[in-house]
Design a protein around this nucleic acid. Structure first.
Lengths: 186, 186
DNA sequence: TGATGCTATGAAACTAGTTGCATAGCAAGA
DNA sequence: TCTTGCTATGCAACTAGTTTCATAGCATCA
């Protein structure tokens, strides 16, 4: 994992669209969540540090009908830091796939555990199916015509296509997993 | 991410085959690395904790031609802890995909940065191609005939098929990414 | 008016994971 | 003999990430 990569994910998100910690947390649950996850506590803490370092500037915004917020945008040093980081070598992904551990672990559990795992896999599959539909809906909405897209949008689109390909791959694999689990009893 | 999931990944690995911290670290770089990564420092530390907790038992093994080692195997409380964990709900994966951040970040860099990114993507692609070939070679070696496999092996195989599907998906997506990046200049 | 729920921010304590360094056995080859 | 390289284990310091708890504005509805 790259050092302090969350900072850089936040810089990209704020360059695409300035916003508050709360808004960033929601993006990290949605569009950015396709490739990065973070809790709101982590985001607020890192934003403070970035503001102290001069990477971002924050200003309080009065809102009607809801609490005030503090909106951030990227300052020149932040943009310079991002450029430096962009040119560093990409680190290999760190993989931590709990379900795969449980599948291999099922070899050391009994029939009841096996049944529980099948139920879990089905639940997990339903979640991924929902995610895929959300991505596809978002794709229709945000990228209807490739020819009219700007460069930033094309890059966002290709990342989204990665998310879509990932979800489709997962769904196909989970079918394989379910077939395998059902096949064990026989 | 599940709480203390590394312990459980170690339990599964030790149930499949007892071994030392060093051996575990290598497995986590190879077969287990398909779905979990950990450094040797982390593994040694967690193994100590697991031994204190009575989850595993370690014993020193004299070796000829190489340094002595401490080999661990799973004790009854560890096996019980694993069973409990196996039946807990699966947590959604936490995604941290640095390359995706960099691709979206490329919208805020110049032509030189774009060229550097293309080189990085190509390097990254070569790594994944190597990984795919390693998986396919391992599959031929370890799972030549599905009909003769035991239950544990079938479960290991379906996890490996997941790794293979993942690598194939990544390679196809990286081609899409490269096309997109090349298409920006025009 | 009280309950619910979303928006909005944050402190504190903890757990997990990384990085750099250190040590040592033993084999093979220059 | 010296160097290189793999096997084998570990400490210390640090950074990243999670969990729990707390606060407060404002809208809606019962």
């Amino acid at each position: 994992m790259a050092r302090v990569a969350l900072e850089h994910a936040i810089l990209v998100s704020l360059l695409e669209q300035p916003g508050s910690g709360y808004e960033l947390a929601r993006r990290f649950d949605r569009s950015i969540g396709r490739f990065w996850t973070a809790t709101h506590q982590q985001i607020y803490r890192v934003l403070k540090r970035m503001e102290v370092d001069g990477w971002v500037t924050g200003q309080d915004v009065d809102q009607e009908g809801r609490p005030d917020k503090r909106s951030y945008s990227v300052a020149a040093p932040g943009r310079a830091a991002l450029t430096t980081w962009l040119r560093e070598p990409v680190q290999p992904e760190t993989v931590r796939h709990e379900l795969a551990v449980k599948i291999r672990g099922a070899a050391f559990d009994d029939a009841a555990g096996r049944a529980a795992l099948i139920a879990e896999v089905e639940h997990y599959r339903a979640d991924h199916k929902t995610t895929l539909h959300r991505y596809l809906t978002g794709e229709q909405r945000d990228f209807p015509d490739e020819a009219t897209l700007g460069e930033g949008q094309r890059l966002q689109h290709v990342v989204l296509r990665g998310g879509i390909a990932y979800e489709r791959m997962v769904l196909a694999w989970l079918d394989d997993v379910l077939d395998t689990l059902h096949g064990l009893g026989r």
